[in-house]
Nucleic acid binder design. Structure first.
Length: 109
DNA sequence: GGTGTGACCAGCT
DNA sequence: AAGCTGGCCACAC
């Protein structure tokens, strides 16, 4: 075990483990990791993902309302929307349709 | 080692 | 009803 950040690493792992065509929320990941208060940390971790050479499905991570909050961090709202649509999801009004059904729980896997 | 921040969530006004 | 502030916790300077 590497004594690395842990939290960040875990976030990357979880995000990377998100099934194709599924979405999850920051709060869910945060709660799964340690505490619901760490929800903001999840966003920060994802902010580092843009430094990742490989494609991290951070676009599958949205807020509790299924709203594409971090779309602006992807370099364009259209990017995130297209990515999700490409995954078979439906985006309407910058929001994931049937988000509740598409919701994937980190601890669920 | 202290301060600031950050893509949230939930409660209060 | 809607808007805003606080809180949480871990990382970077």
């Amino acid at each position: 075990m590497k004594s690395n950040s842990g939290f960040f690493q875990k976030v990357y792992e979880v995000v990377r483990q998100i099934p194709h065509g599924r979405v999850t929320s920051y709060g869910a990941i945060a709660e799964y990791l340690g505490g619901r208060g760490s929800s903001r940390m999840v966003g920060w971790a994802l902010n580092n993902t843009k430094n990742f050479p490989e494609n991290l499905p951070a676009h599958r991570v949205v807020n509790r309302k299924g709203l594409l909050t971090g779309k602006r961090h992807f370099g364009g709202a259209e990017i995130m929307k297209q990515l999700l649509e490409s995954e078979g999801l439906t985006i309407q009004d910058d929001r994931i349709v049937n988000f509740k059904e598409r919701f994937w729980e980190p601890a669920g896997e």
